[in-house]
Design a protein around this nucleic acid. Structure first.
Lengths: 216, 216
DNA sequence: TAAACTTTGTACTATTTTTCACAAAATCAC
DNA sequence: GTGATTTTGTGAAAAATAGTACAAAGTTTA
């Protein structure tokens, strides 16, 4: 499962999907080769950092030439397990949840939202972006049955923890948490936290206190 | 404007809004005092890190006692400029944009979405969450007139850069970018980038390659 | 073929962030 | 009031991340 030889630094691992997307862009625009300097310009990451990131996977480039787009792309496809589908459930079909359902993650991606859940009877039974919406009461059963590995949590904050407990029970391994709640989960479960209000506030803080500073 | 004595580390600055929110919770639940250990449990940040973060602002706590919730709260309110309102514009009233408009940022916060823009004539003229929606053609004029400082960018990727150029022209100082595009802006403009697809992909990568590892 | 040029991969250095661990100061219990 | 307990604030160490600079190895040009 963990099939790389060396442990990749977390900071690097977070940039991989970004690299992958830009490589896809380059590929579809017909580009054959690319240098770390060009890539740097596009993704706004220092070119040395990019070369270092790539080097964790071995020597992927050629001196004086750069990187072969096709080679790099197929390498990353393997590395990011683009061939292996990860099944996702969306919990909470509010505005944010609906945005996710329309945002078709399946395209060229290794994740697919298979099912969505909500308490609103007006939504249950409908389909958004080809994803069927079920009632929250059926969540646990359905998630186990469909062998869902990841949940996107877009529910009101007060119910975030109890629902999380149910997700853990249902064998979910990762949670993308959009609620402001900080979730309590066993160590084996991975939670990524995206807090929209905090993002906006911290942007404002930086604006006021770091007048002209380097980027995030 | 930059009114703290010392430069606060960026990592610390990003945690401040989080601390602030949990302090508000504690306050409204009637708690008088709190230790770094308790806070650590709640926000999932190491207690030593919390103490260090606080210490950048001076000695806010009392040994053997902890921190006074009221004192800390009013201190952070000042520090985070909760009294000073930052005006925000929302560009692109799709699903994600609509989610923002319903998410009433005004409550207890220092930011307010004043106006929204879209190209869809069906949306122009309407109001969502008390925020009026104007046509994109009027954006530049309106943003200058309303003295908007921050823009939330929830538009399709292909138009992200041209719209950004207009925002820069209109004197916007910060952009919260939800499009996959990496924006080119002058050094003085701050861009925070939240890439939903990348977040999901990197969660999946961590799940597959770091079986039981520490949190993000 | 040879000289000029390009670009990687990485040793080394710098910076940032986190954590340990403990003295000092205060609280708490009785 | 006194001793046990709690908890901060921070020096120092460790860990993580980023950036500089350059030899090496290739490409390109002519």
């Amino acid at each position: 499962m963990a099939n790389e030889t060396v442990k990749i630094p977390q900071a690097t691992a977070k940039r991989l999907p970004l690299y992958y997307r830009f490589l896809k862009n380059l590929h579809s625009s017909g580009k054959q080769r690319v240098s770390s300097a060009e890539l740097s310009e596009a993704v706004k990451v220092d070119s040395a950092t990019i070369r270092r990131d790539f080097s964790y996977f071995g020597a992927l480039g050629k001196k004086g030439y750069g990187y072969n787009v096709n080679y790099l792309l197929s390498f990353f496809r393997k590395t990011l397990d683009q061939d292996e589908l990860t099944k996702v459930a969306l919990i909470g079909v509010g505005n944010l949840g609906t945005a996710f359902l329309h945002y078709n993650f399946l395209k060229n991606n290794n994740t697919k939202i298979e099912v969505a859940f909500d308490v609103d009877e007006g939504k249950v039974g409908k389909t958004i972006g080809e994803v069927p919406i079920f009632h929250m009461d059926d969540m646990d059963k359905q998630i186990v049955a469909a062998d869902i590995q990841v949940a996107i949590l877009t529910v009101p904050a007060p119910v975030a923890q109890p629902i999380t407990d149910r997700l853990v029970q249902a064998n979910v391994k990762g949670i993308l948490n959009f609620t402001p709640a900080r979730l309590n989960v066993p160590a084996a479960i991975r939670v990524h936290h995206i807090d929209l209000a905090v993002e906006l506030q911290s942007l404002v803080y930086f604006l006021k206190h770091y007048p002209t500073e380097t980027e995030e």
